[in-house]
Amino acid sequence: MQWNNWNDFLHMGGYAVYVWGSFGACALGMLLEPWLLKRRRHAILARLSGQENVQ
């Protein structure tokens, strides 16, 4: 383990903005994408079951 305490870890040796800005953007993108896809899938399935009800 590289860190003595939680604060050192968050501080990242003075590069906190850059390191957390990078990791945060990646986490955001890679959580948002599957979420959007799940919504897209639900929208399609809702349309499909709507079709069935009409028929």
Partner: peptide
């Protein structure tokens, strides 16, 4: 983030490499 050592040149800033 937790285990890899600090870099001699770039300190903790190099950790951006992992993404």
């Amino acid at each position: 983030l937790l285990f890899a050592p600090t870099d001699a040149q770039q300190g903790e800033g190099y950790r951006i490499i992992f993404v």
